[in-house]
Design a protein around this nucleic acid. Structure first.
Length: 636
RNA sequence: GCCGCUGUGGCUUAGAGGUAGAGCGGCUGACUCGUAAUCAGCAGGUCGUGGGUUCAAAUCCCACCGGCGGCUCCA
């Protein structure tokens, strides 16, 4: 049960309109003075142990009532305090028994009608105790009788109060932070969109994001109605792209010096170090009940716990630092229903998650910069140019006030090579003092983070992660959290949205060559040309080649290849067989109008493709190279 | 989670109280085909699910489920 207490001069409310769970009422309008208003959400778990919860909640209410010296109490049902409400019938029952319980203690109590849309005004007294919130929990199992009132977590309260301010910082800009009203956006439309999105957090959009249609049509991914929303299915092409991106990120961080590990995807809710995190986002976990007295489990929302718990048990010398640990972590966040969209925001996603233990802030900053550059390289390698993303640097006021740190921030802006958005928090409300993200702005002008690095000054201590320094003393390291690419699915979203933006701009949409499921399609004019194609295939190893051997016209096959965004399409007819060449169409970004096919030698074509995809991971075609043997995964 | 919109064969959709219609895709056949949709035929639908109103419901009402958008949020 969630309770919000407001000690008020008065409350006025009026029942306006019934909802379908409305209880019958006699009075629709009330005004009550010198009152402790208790906003209440009865939660599902309360149904299990209703009497206990009513007793505890009443005790707590009386205690607050006495402390603030109110004259009467109003119980005001307020569903919005919880995401896990009890049934309306039980809620009314529980609220009524709470009303009676309080009345039996000799207090004047009024209960606002349940299940009505109500208007209300109240005046909060504003003294230190005038606003309080409490959560009442039922007893866990049979034995544990003493779980009672808990305060909301400190972090959550702090965050509500935390204020932040936006600025800009340009490359040559020694003068410090520029206020948004003094910043000239000219030519920086994307940054402007990003800023508007960040500062207003709202967009008037009534369209489905373009990538959703594309992910289906290109047989990449799709919704799975039989799972929880936000858990997608990936078709062979999507799975291939995903696996290639994963390979690429894995290789990149290995090159940077991280070791790959794997940690469990579920953890006990009882673990003391995890509790703070959990309390902060109670409704956002996938959790399951532990049977037979075992503790409940939740699915991880990142690889942090696993790697922290692993680090805690390691013996680490200062000589091992900076120590980098990496995991391609399937992660779960039960995001609110309305937040889920296509590949942009999921409940199950793959997060490349690297943590770096650093001996001190100095070393942390050195690594932070390296990782900043690593992230730029990774995005570049995937196929994003710096024009495709906007940089945000976020830090606490305290961090920025150090003169050396100011220079550090300016250096980061120079590396970005363009103005960046700054967010400065008045106080630290979470575990980091500095973070950056590279944000993609999509076709509907929504921004979402790709790469990010954060400097964590809190979790080493919380988890008991220590290293031994040169003097033999135990120290807490500073921890860097880094996702070099951001969630893999989100990269796919950004690639699709970018392709859509290209299309809007008059270009042919395309995926990067190394990620294209089919890189080269061979089209025989007639059946008799298949033999020649079969001869060529062994030459083209290391490239994903397929053959459109269906009984269709050449025009149809060309069109279908175009709809699949295939980068190289080679037609083979009598002429080619005779001259031992290929007639190749190249889908370049600027070829939307010209549709020329040029004669090319097979080896020449192979070299050209190999040159373009060298240094990138390669995987074979995930299905038959013959189109006639391939099933369709999505309709038409 | 709340509010609004939405759900018709595998896909895209027409129909807005009175016998479910089309295109794509699939299958069969013909054409062996030269750069963005060859022609003909066939199969495929308890109109998201469950209730209700009605002589009659894809169509109106309610609930639930999925999708989209907004609010909110993004460790």
């Amino acid at each position: 049960m969630q309770l919000l207490f407001i000690h008020s001069d008065y409350i006025e409310y009026e029942a306006k309109e019934k909802t379908r769970v409305a209880e019958p009422i006699s009075e629709s309008k009330e005004r009550i003075e010198e009152v402790l208003v208790v906003f209440i959400a009865v939660e599902r778990e309360d149904e299990q142990d209703a009497r206990y919860v009513v007793e505890k909640a009443s005790e707590e209410t009386i205690s607050v009532f006495n402390k603030v010296g109110a004259e009467r109490i109003v119980l005001y049902p307020y569903a919005h305090l919880s995401a896990e409400l009890a049934s309306p019938e039980r809620s009314i029952e529980i609220l009524s028994s709470m009303e009676e319980n309080l009345r039996s203690r000799g207090v004047e109590v009024k209960r606002a009608p349940f299940g009505w849309y109500k208007s209300f005004t109240l005046r909060c007294k504003g003294h230190p105790l005038s606003e309080l919130s409490r959560k009442i929990q039922g007893r866990e199992g049979a034995g544990a009788g003493e779980v009672g009132v808990e305060k909301l977590s400190k972090a959550l309260e702090a965050e509500e109060k935390a204020e932040s301010h936006f600025f800009f910082l340009d490359t040559g800009n020694k003068g410090g932070l520029i206020k948004p009203e003094d910043f000239e956006f000219d030519g920086r439309e994307n940054l402007q969109k990003f800023f508007i999105y960040e500062s207003e957090k709202r967009r008037a959009v009534d369209k489905v994001p373009p990538h959703v249609e594309l992910m289906k049509r290109l047989e990449i991914a799709d919704y799975e109605p039989s799972s929880d929303p936000g858990n997608l299915r990936f078709y062979p092409k999507g799975k291939l792209i995903k696996a290639l991106l994963e390979d690429y990120v894995r290789n990149s961080v290995a090159e940077y010096g991280a070791v790959e590990v794997e940690t469990p995807i579920m953890y006990s809710v009882e673990h003391p170090s995890l509790k703070d995190y959990l309390e902060r986002f109670p409704a956002r976990q996938y959790s399951m009940a532990g049977k037979g007295g075992k503790p409940d489990l939740f699915l991880r929302f990142s690889a942090c716990f696993g790697q922290f718990l692993m680090s805690k048990d390691m013996s680490i010398s200062y000589k091992n630092l900076p120590l980098k640990m990496f995991e391609l972590a399937p992660s779960f966040r039960k995001e609110k229903r309305g937040e889920l969209v296509g590949l942009r925001r999921l409940r199950k996603f793959t997060m490349p998650d690297m943590h770096t233990l650093c001996r001190d802030m100095k070393e942390a900053l050195v690594e932070f910069k390296k990782q900043y550059e690593l992230c730029m390289r990774v995005l570049e390698g995937i196929g994003f140019s710096p024009r495709d993303y906007e940089v945000a640097l976020r830090f606490t006021r305290e961090f920025y006030d150090g003169e050396a740190n100011k220079e550090f921030i300016e250096e980061l802006v120079r590396i970005a090579g363009k103005p960046v958005l700054i967010e400065r928090w008045d106080q630290r409300f979470f575990y980091f003092v500095l973070k950056f993200e590279f944000n993609f702005v999509d076709a509907l002008e929504k921004a979402s983070a790709l790469s990010t690095v954060q400097i964590d000054v809190e979790n080493a201590e919380r988890y008991g992660i220590k290293y031994v320094d040169a003097n033999g003393e135990e120290k807490y390291p500073i921890i860097l959290h880094c996702s070099p690419s951001g969630a893999i699915e989100r990269c796919m979203y950004a690639l699709l949205e970018r392709a859509y933006l290209d299309m809007e701009g008059g270009f042919l949409p395309q995926l990067p060559l190394w990620l294209s499921p089919t890189q080269l399609r061979m089209i025989p004019v007639a059946e008799r040309h298949l033999e020649y194609i079969e001869e060529l295939l062994p030459v083209l190893t290391g490239i994903r080649v397929d053959v459109d051997d269906r009984e269709e016209t050449v025009s149809k096959k060309i069109r279908d290849a175009g709809r699949e965004w295939i980068p190289y399409v080679a037609v083979v007819g009598d002429k080619e067989v005779e001259k031992r060449t290929l007639s190749v169409r190249i889908r370049e970004r600027n070829l939307s109008l010209e549709k020329k096919a040029l004669p090319m030698d097979v080896r020449e074509l192979k070299e050209q493709i190999e040159e373009a995809i060298k240094s990138k991971p390669f995987r074979e075609l995930p299905f038959s190279y013959k189109l006639s043997e391939r099933a369709r995964f999505v309709g038409g």
